[in-house]
Simulated assay, not measured.
Amino acid sequence: MTTVTSATATATATATAGSTGKTGTGIGADFNTFLGLLTTQLKNQDPTKAMDTQEMTNQLVQFASVEQQISMNGNLDKLIGLQQAAQLTAAAPLMGKVVEVASDRISLQGGTGTLRLPAAGAASLARVTVLDAAGRTLKQQDVTLGTTATDWVWDGRNAAGQRQPDGGYRIVVAGRDKDGNPQEITANVVARATAAERASGGDLKLVLGGVAVGFDAVRSLGQ
């Protein structure tokens, strides 16, 4: 029985190597490969201890199951690719539209960047800090929260008045109550959608100038 198993594995490896680079080949699609596996297995049986019929049937069923799974995985990959392409196409109407997204990076477009702060609650004040790629503070400002959402607009200048190039900048928003105690606060970024792309990992991204976010980060659509 050990000899049969070893020979079957060798035949399987040979068949696999021979089918490398071919599309749609395998046990179910290539009858010659199937016959090769079956013949090799029969040749290597011990004549005095022929393989049990049920055991052979089980192996043939396993061969078919593996082939079916390979085919199913291929079809699933195609389906995912088509779905992602459809999502990219569906994102076309967003291009040029103002979008509110959850992000820790503000998009500086045309010299301005907008951050949407929530209405006052436990926090009545928000300290907004804009950082560059090296983590240096470019701008910091305290904003009093109103009864409705407040848009804070950055003019693209640092504390020294120097204009920064368009792109994505990290933001940190810290909430404070009327007594100055820290309070949790969530702010969103408002920017104009400029592109939609598929990242290297297959994830779809909505591009807002120098900031890219997943479509699940979209919170609202504007004009």
Score class of each variant (00 low, 15 high):
Ser103Lys: 13
Leu117Lys: 05
Ser103Phe: 06
Ala123Lys: 06
Asp104Ile: 01
Val101Lys: 01
Arg127Pro: 00
Val98Arg: 08
Thr129Ala: 09
Thr112Pro: 02
Val99Ala: 04
Val128Cys: 06
Ser107Cys: 08
Gly111His: 07
Gly113Ala: 13
Leu115Cys: 09
Ala120Ser: 15
Ala102Leu: 09
Arg127Ala: 05
Val128Ile: 15
Arg127Glu: 08
Val130Trp: 00
Thr114Lys: 02
Gln109Phe: 03
Gly113Val: 08
Ala102Thr: 12
Leu117Glu: 01
Val98Trp: 10
Ala123Arg: 09
Ser103His: 11
Ser103Asn: 13
Thr112Val: 15
Leu125Ile: 15
Ser124Thr: 15
Glu100Arg: 03
Arg127Val: 09
Ile106Arg: 00
Ala119Met: 09
Ser107Pro: 04
Thr114Tyr: 00
Val99Glu: 01
Gln109Arg: 08
Gly121Met: 06
Ser124Arg: 14
Ser103Gln: 13
Gln109Met: 07
Gln109Asp: 04
Thr114Ser: 05
Gly111Gln: 11
Val128Thr: 07
Arg127Cys: 00
Ala120Cys: 12
Ala123Asn: 12
Gly121Tyr: 06
Gly121Thr: 11
Ala123Val: 10
Arg127Gly: 02
Ala119Phe: 07
Leu108Val: 13
Glu100Lys: 02
Arg116Thr: 14
Ala122Glu: 14
Gly121Asn: 13
Asp104Ala: 12
Glu100Asp: 12
Val101Glu: 03
Ser124Gln: 15
Val128Tyr: 05
Val101Asp: 03
Ser107Asn: 04
Arg116Ile: 14
Leu108Gln: 11
Arg116His: 07
Ala126Met: 10
Val99Trp: 02
Leu115Phe: 12
Leu108Ser: 10
Val128Gly: 03
Val128Asp: 01
Ser103Val: 09
Val130Ser: 02
Ser107Trp: 02
Val130Glu: 05
Val128Gln: 02
Val101Phe: 08
Val98Tyr: 01
Val130Thr: 04
Arg105Thr: 14
Thr112Arg: 09
Arg127Thr: 11
Ala123Met: 11
Gly111Asp: 11
Ala126Trp: 06
Gly110Ala: 10
Thr112Ile: 14
Ser103Gly: 13
Ala122Ser: 15
Leu117His: 04
Ala120Asn: 08
Leu108His: 07
Val99Phe: 04
Gly111Thr: 09
Asp104Val: 05
Thr129Trp: 09
Ser124Cys: 12
Thr112Glu: 13
Leu117Tyr: 06
Thr112Cys: 04
Gln109Glu: 06
Thr129Glu: 10
Ile106Pro: 00
Glu100Leu: 11
Leu117Ser: 06
Leu115Thr: 08
Val98Ala: 13
Val128Lys: 04
Ala126Asp: 08
Gly121Val: 06
Ser107Arg: 01
Arg127Tyr: 00
Thr114Trp: 00
Asp104Gln: 10
Leu115Val: 15
Thr129Tyr: 07
Arg116Asp: 12
Arg127Leu: 05
Val98Glu: 14
Ala120Tyr: 13
Val98Cys: 00
Arg105Val: 07
Leu125Tyr: 15
